[in-house]
Design a binder for these strands. Structure first.
Length: 724
DNA sequence: TTAGTTAAGATTTTT
DNA sequence: TCTTAACTAA
């Protein structure tokens, strides 16, 4: 009797074939919902069980942390004993993993900093100014994009293409690129793009190092291969090595990162790149209803540059897609939440719901409505906890402690908290450092500048405090202990608690939470170090404040939704200009990419799909008339069911005092019940009018207008009298 | 010279 | 709506 292989259980023929494939190049063209992740994880299991491959000899790469985590989870489930040994990382985290082991070879020192976008921008800003140009003419963002896209294509600063004939504008950007790289190196720092770029350079410069990793990782898997850009493509080839045990998985219809340099051609040319490639197509969708799959197929058929394919499902027909026409974006959020509430009555599980939108900015109204209705939710992407100003300041402090050469971080904190070192002084110091080619860290205490006595004294104190903390690191204090004494020594707590309004209190709490996160890291790490902690968080993406919810409605951009699935999907903001986004209209192939994006969104839905659009919306400050997305007209009517919600615009009820949540450490005796429009009296500012009430419990914030002046207060800390 | 205030300007998608 | 640059008072 043939023994039943549990690894193959429940798989269809092409899936089995992909799982059983042993050596050599393998291309899996996996349509949406065709069980791709399942195939990858089972393939890993099969290599280990059947072919006796050691788990750490397998390296699987993805694009997002979320996808990497999910894959790691599923592999661990399948292989409880050895799953954790499989290398599962994003391209960027793999790069960092490798670069940290060869720091000298890439011309850096240990403890290097990984710059986030804001530090990159401030460095670029300096470069632009120092080269004598106006930041309004050369916007840091634009320059950075040019540099980034250059790195995506593995182009060195010296090779930067300035056009034919030479474009003076690009010639200047090239100079900036060169200067930026030079300074970044002097500051012992890397940026995101370097993580992959320098790994490729390392492998090309040192073939023996590449060989070491080829010997280590004998089997390479790359998920979402259609989203690889040129450097990632080169890295994939280098990792595949001589053995070419490379398995890539992808779907050209789901390529949505061309703006980050992704090149669909990579997946289309895979067979040419690797002559003996085995190609397997997964075309049966197990996820969605017939209606959803057929609607998606009709939509994507409007794209000209794509491989013809036939995605089908044996699932039931399902319900028609609901199209919700709303009077305004405000109404839209209300209607979506109401529908979630009524559907929830049946399924009783919020995890089944997802709200998608094109841009992060669209999340606000939904968030508000969910909060008012006490529906648990999580926002993925967008603003991270680590993006908060005060947290960035803390990270800058820690970066300087680990890497004193990091002048960009040093500049960020040189006058935070305010220590009388203003713009003029900073400019003098900075100039000296650049002119004499010395680290700023040294210049602040060792210069011949004619600074005020007090300014110089405060710089000396600043420096000696930093040195003191550095001493503590070498004495083996824990990262959290260092951070705690940093907060006290630098008088950050003092500075923030003296602020009377909401912000100060909130910031101090955030810093407290930051320290908690360091402690958490310490607990789950063997040899915790500040350096490693900083490296880790530099690659982290957001999951709205670590709220530990078991059940929640998911809010995310369509980009973030790739690879996920939900029973109920609400695709919101289906208006021309929003989706497809107006910024994409001038880009070549822009509309087709937006359409693929829409295709991705639709194919996330298992049971029910809702499209919503509003007839009126705000763009900039103007209220504009909006029109339904062109994509809606590309889906045949028979799959859609239109409902028009025409509501009278109402003023939103803004009081949230109904459900007070009280924290254990303090109690709220009685907060005044404030409503928009009420008149109140403040000790210092006199009588004013309430403009806005946000939040609940002790976090209730109120915005009050005193004549022309508007102020924010934290209700729990602000004595207010209601004036009748 | 610094720090706080007011006016203007800018807005995709992510590692 | 939120950030940044210019402006003004101390």
């Amino acid at each position: 009797m043939k023994q039943l292989n549990p690894i193959l259980e429940g798989l269809n023929e092409p899936q089995k074939e992909a799982v059983l494939h042993h050596e050599g190049p393998l291309l899996i063209l996996a349509g949406a919902g065709s069980g791709k992740t399942r195939v990858i994880t089972h393939r890993i299991a099969n290599l280990i069980f059947t072919h006796r491959v050691l788990p750490y000899k397998i390296c699987a790469l993805t694009f997002t942390n979320k996808a990497a985590n999910e894959m790691a989870e599923r592999v661990k489930k399948l292989l409880p004993n050895s799953g954790h040994l499989v290398m599962i990382k994003t391209f960027h985290s793999l790069g960092l993993y490798i670069l940290r082991r060869h720091t000298e070879k890439i011309g850096l020192q240990s403890g290097f900093t990984v710059y986030d976008t804001s530090l990159q921008e401030s460095l670029i800003k300096e470069v632009v100014k120092d080269l004598g140009f106006d930041v309004r003419e050369f916007r840091p963002n634009t320059v950075l994009q040019a540099i980034q896209s250059s790195k995506d294509n593995y182009i060195f600063p010296e090779e930067f293409d300035t056009g034919e004939p030479t474009d003076p504008q690009l010639e200047i950007i090239k100079k900036m690129y060169i200067e930026y790289e030079k300074r970044k190196k002097n500051q012992n720092a890397l940026d995101f793009g370097d993580l992959v770029f320098l790994t490729v350079k390392l492998f090309l410069d040192y073939p023996e190092i590449k060989q070491t990793y080829n010997n280590l990782w004998e089997y390479i898997l790359v998920d979402e291969y259609q989203d690889t850009n040129h450097v990632q493509y080169i890295l994939t080839h280098l990792l595949a090595g001589e053995k070419k045990n490379l398995c890539v998985v992808g779907d050209d219809d789901q390529s949505i990162y061309s703006w980050r340099g992704a090149d669909i051609q990579n997946i289309l040319d895979f067979e040419k790149d690797f002559p003996n490639t085995k190609v397997i197509k997964l075309e049966e969708n197990y996820r969605s209803t017939k209606n959803i799959i057929e609607a998606a197929s009709h939509l994507i058929a409007n794209n000209i540059s794509r491989k013809e394919k036939n995605l089908f499902t044996n699932n039931p027909k399902g319900e028609k897609i609901q199209v919700l026409e709303c009077a305004s974006d405000y109404d839209e959020s209300e209607i979506v939440i109401e529908l979630i509430k009524s559907e929830y009555q049946k399924s009783k599980n919020y995890n089944k719901f997802a709200i998608f939108y094109r841009t992060n900015a669209q999340s606000r109204l939904f968030e508000e409505k969910l909060r008012v209705n006490s529906i648990p939710y999580k926002i993925f992407g967008g603003f991270r906890f680590f993006d908060r100003m005060e947290i960035k300041d803390m990270i800058a402090y820690l970066s300087v402690l680990v890497n004193p050469l990091d002048s960009s971080s040093l500049l960020r904190i040189i006058n935070f908290p305010p220590r009388g070192v203003g713009e003029t002084t900073v400019e003098k110091l900075r100039r000296t450092a650049i002119d004499q080619d010395r680290p700023l860290y040294e210049v602040i205490v060792n210069n011949n500048l004619d600074l005020r006595k007090q300014t110089q004294a405060s710089l000396v104190e600043f420096h000696s405090n930093l040195e003191d903390l550095r001493q503590k690191i070498s004495e083996g204090y824990l990262p959290s202990q260092i951070t705690e004494s940093l907060v006290v020594q630098m008088r950050i707590d003092e500075e923030l608690s003296k602020a009377q309004d909401i912000e100060g209190k909130e910031r101090l709490e955030n810093i407290q939470q930051f320290i908690e996160s360091i402690k958490e890291y310490e607990q789950k790490t063997e040899n915790p170090s500040l350096e490693e902690y900083l490296n880790q968080i530099s690659l982290l993406t957001s999951e709205e404040d670590g709220k530990d919810l078991k059940e929640y409605v998911t809010l995310m951009t369509v980009h973030n939704s790739k690879g996920l699935e939900f029973d109920y999907v609400f695709m919101t903001g289906m208006e021309n200009g929003t989706f497809p986004h107006w910024m994409s209209q001038d880009e070549e192939g822009g509309l087709e990419e937006e359409r693929r994006l829409c295709y991705v969104a639709i194919t996330r839905a298992r049971e029910k799909l809702f499209f919503s659009y509003s007839k009126i919306g705000r763009r900039q400050r103007m209220t504009e008339e909006l029109f339904p997305s062109i994509f809606l007209s590309e889906i045949p009517e028979k799959y859609l069911n239109y409902t028009s919600y025409n509501r009278k615009p109402q003023t939103p009820p803004l009081t949230k005092n109904a459900n007070l949540q009280t924290k254990a450490n303090w109690s709220i005796k009685s907060l005044p019940e404030l409503t928009k429009g009420m008149r109140v009296k403040h000790k210092q500012y006199g009588v004013g009018k309430v403009i806005e009430v946000v939040g609940e419990g002790e976090n209730t914030k109120v915005k009050i207008a005193f004549g022309e002046i508007q102020k924010n207060f934290l209700l729990a800390y602000t004595p207010l009298e209601i004036v009748f």
